Amino acid sequence: MGERNMLKRSFDFIIAFLLLSAALPVMGVVYALVRFKLGAPALFKQQRPGLHGKPFYLLKFRTMTDERDGEGKLLSDHLRLTPFGQLLRKTSLDELPQLINVLKGELSLVGPRPLLMEYLPLYTEEQAKRHLVRPGITGWAQVNGRNAVTWEERFERDVWYVENRTMLLDFKILFLTVKKVITSDGVSNGAHMTMPLFEGNARNQEG
């Protein structure tokens, strides 16, 4: 197990370094466009749970404005997500800064996507297994539905990955991810631009 983890970490670091080096000119252009169209800061930074739930700050390019209502509350996603932001999400260009998280060892290239910190107490014991491995930029759930599946289906696929992960499976997921990005398959979930908020499992809310 330790040897496999070391191999995966070495692979992550080398590939992330090469990708980041190649993507720097593109990231520079995206950074400038985000600053021009959405304002500062160009980077979105949010605390997410990592390996064993340990928090870290996930990096992405901003895709939404900071528009608020009369009471100072942020408007809903679909009102703040601009056509430019939609393009960044459709092409996954907003995800490029996460290569920095991979270099730092906070993310893997492949693993369950890191969600929100407030979801941690809402998981069942089975669903919490998704935190037994380092989270990833892409994962089994992303290439099997992405945002177009239910939370329960997404968690089932995350746990399946944890229990069946191999380097060969990681290569398959990376290949399928490129295919998904090209076709923009599963970017939205029905009327939501992203996944709706996870409010826990029905059995967790009873009583």
Rank of each mutant, 00 (worst) to 15 (best):
Y161D: 02
M195E: 00
A32I: 06
T82A: 12
V102R: 04
V30E: 04
I14V: 14
M64I: 03
L116C: 03
A32S: 14
T150P: 13
R203T: 07
E71F: 11
R113S: 03
L169T: 01
K37Y: 12
S184H: 09
T91G: 08
W151H: 11
L96R: 04
M117C: 08
T177D: 04
E71M: 13
R89Y: 09
P135K: 10
V181F: 05
S184L: 04
L132G: 15
L120S: 05
D185W: 14
P114L: 00
G186H: 01
L20S: 03
P112S: 05
V162C: 08
G139W: 11
I173D: 02
P83A: 07
R48P: 05
K54R: 13
K104M: 15
W151M: 05
G39N: 02
R68W: 04
L79G: 10
K104S: 13
D158G: 06
T177C: 00
H131W: 12
R134H: 10
Q46E: 02
Y119C: 02
L122W: 07
R134D: 09
D170Q: 03
A128I: 12
E125Q: 14
P41K: 03
G53S: 04
P49V: 01
R62Q: 01
L120V: 02
V149S: 15
V29K: 11
T166L: 06
Y119N: 00
Q142S: 03
Q47E: 15
G28S: 07
I173R: 00
Y123W: 04
R4G: 11
Q127N: 04
L43N: 02
N5V: 13
A42C: 04
N101H: 03
Q127C: 10
A148C: 08
Y119P: 01
N144M: 11
G72Y: 01
G186M: 02
L103N: 01
